[in-house]
């Protein structure tokens, strides 16, 4: 038995020295995506979420989102809602971590209460939209395993196609298929496969703009649910970078006075 293990190990490492595996290739591509988005410092933008149901009924949420890049760990973010009016002033503070559980606090303005909430809610809908909590938290390389699938032209852009397998608990997905622009190393499309490995949703990134001569941000993101026929459009406006945000901008005291 021991010999067998040794044998497999030897053969395995033999293989490695000759060719890079699809998993390694996938990881390399993602690392490149991550490196190119490193160093933006902080950003602030206004987000409009437009929810459509099958009948075309529309409902809008408006929020302001601040993000602080944390070196060697997940980002910090603060979201403050201004619409619908009844949740105006509600604020959501999140510290993402690569390996440990995220830390999240909610501020309820009517009660003036800051409440630590469980970050186990990954697959649940964010504000009734087609986006799940896990779709909107900051991307960390360690959160997934990767596999390179193929090259493909998507919307006339040469892309890598990768598969992502979530490694964190409570994910609603078995896998995600991502189209990454070979030149800019940015995602153009993601297909989400549910726990039964059936195609659930597709996210399309549109109207990318470059900031600080380096960082690409999509102005429009459209998430379509193939099962329910509903979709949610995200419109990002007024992107501002390097606002001199600090940890202090993202503490529970600022949560209480955020607007």
């Amino acid at each position: 038995m021991n010999r067998l293990i040794l044998f497999t190990f030897l053969v395995g490492s033999w293989g490695h020295t000759f060719a890079i595996t699809a998993e390694q290739r996938g990881l390399q591509i993602i690392q490149q995506v991550d490196i190119r988005d490193t160093g933006f410092g902080d950003s602030e933008s206004d987000l409009k979420m437009i929810l459509h149901n099958r009948n075309g009924d529309e409902s809008t949420r408006v929020l302001n989102m601040k993000t602080l890049e944390v070196k060697g760990d997940g980002d910090k973010s603060l979201s403050v809602f201004s619409n619908p009016r009844d949740i105006k002033g509600t604020a959501f503070l999140s510290f993402t971590h690569a390996l440990e559980a995220d830390e999240q606090w909610l501020y309820l303005p009517a009660l003036k209460r800051v409440k630590r909430i469980s970050s186990s809610n990954k697959s649940g809908p964010y504000l009734g939209s087609e986006f799940a909590f896990e779709d909107l938290t900051s991307f960390e390389v360690q959160k997934y395993h990767y596999k390179y699938l193929t090259d493909e032209i998507y919307k006339n852009i040469d892309c890598f196609v990768l598969e992502l397998y979530p490694q964190y608990k409570h994910s609603g997905y078995t896998r995600q298929v991502v189209w990454i622009d070979k030149e800019r190393y940015i995602p153009l499309k993601i297909d989400y496969y549910d726990r039964k490995n059936a195609l659930l949703k597709t996210l399309e990134y549109n109207s990318y703009q470059q900031y600080l001569d380096q960082y690409w941000r999509a102005d429009k993101m459209l998430m379509t649910n193939h099962i329910t026929g509903k979709n949610t459009l995200l419109l990002w406006e007024n992107y501002k970078f390097r606002n001199n945000f600090t940890d202090r901008t993202f503490d529970r005291n600022s949560l209480k006075r955020s607007r």
């Binding site: 469980s118 649940g124 809908p125 799940a132 549910d194």
Partner: peptide
């Protein structure tokens, strides 16, 4: 104790 996204229905 919260059961999030019960049966993938979105219900907590």
């Amino acid at each position: 104790y919260t059961l999030f996204d019960l049966f993938s229905s979105g219900l907590d």
